[in-house]
Simulated scan of single mutants.
Amino acid sequence: MKKNNKLVLLGAALTMTAGFSMIGASVNADQVINAGQYTENAQQLQQIFTNKNKNFSLKEVSVENHSDNKQEPVYELKGFNAKKTQSAKMVVNAEKTNQIIKNKTKKMSSSDKKDANALNINDVKKSPVDAINLAKKYANVNGNPTSWKLEMKKVNGTETPVYEVEFDGTVTAVSSSSVSSAKSSSVKDAKAKKSSKASSKAAKSNKKVTVKLNATNGNKISVKNEK
């Protein structure tokens, strides 16, 4: 019986260890990044993409954390060839853009062909930095974005390059240190604290905020709050 008890205890320990390992993996997989640190412009990213994919057009750029790079930030570049028979997906290390992690092509499906709109680089007048700063203003947030994407979308019936900038909901909160360091009257301090509490409450209620804006003129298209 003693041996059996030992085996039971050992099995339980192994199960708990495996459980903790799985929890750790899921945490890493959900890790967010400061996408505001990775703002390579569309022209440079297009060059990286087409250097390896001759006669291909770039259709989408995004920056995010990625399992292909051990949860480190990457640029993900997608495009298609001139005949719209092949699609390409490239993953580039966002820290070192000369390091290509993945570059694969595959046959395009009929549905893929319908969505194959080449990114009009000449119409991208706003840089990722501009887009992020405008998105902060439109969403009324003061934190860093967790991802951004650039692709063609229809705006008022016209194909237009559009930025989609995503923020974690908690970025709405104003830090208490910034409030306390402000040199103002007691009345202003009270208002600032009240505003800070309201912002903190709003931050807790939002999971994320997604802003879409026109990459040509910077105009707001939409702001979506997900609770």
Rank of each mutant, 00 (worst) to 15 (best):
S57R: 15
A182L: 11
K114V: 08
I101P: 00
A25G: 02
T210V: 09
N206L: 15
T39C: 06
Y75L: 13
M152G: 01
V223W: 09
K197S: 15
P128L: 01
Q86P: 05
V8P: 00
I101V: 11
A88D: 04
K227M: 08
E76S: 09
N156E: 15
N225A: 04
Y75G: 03
S87C: 04
N41C: 03
A203S: 14
A135K: 02
I33W: 06
V124Q: 11
S200I: 01
S127I: 02
N133G: 00
N140K: 13
K52H: 14
N214Y: 09
K154T: 08
K114M: 11
D130Q: 04
A118T: 03
K114E: 12
K193Y: 14
S180L: 09
V209D: 00
N103E: 08
V187G: 12
K114Q: 11
F56P: 08
E151Y: 05
S199R: 15
K104G: 12
I23E: 03
T17E: 05
L119Y: 02
Y163D: 13
K126W: 07
I33R: 02
K96F: 12
F167E: 03
Y38S: 07
D189G: 08
E151H: 03
S176K: 14
K59Q: 15
E95W: 04
V91Q: 03
S177P: 11
L119M: 09
K194Y: 07
V165Q: 10
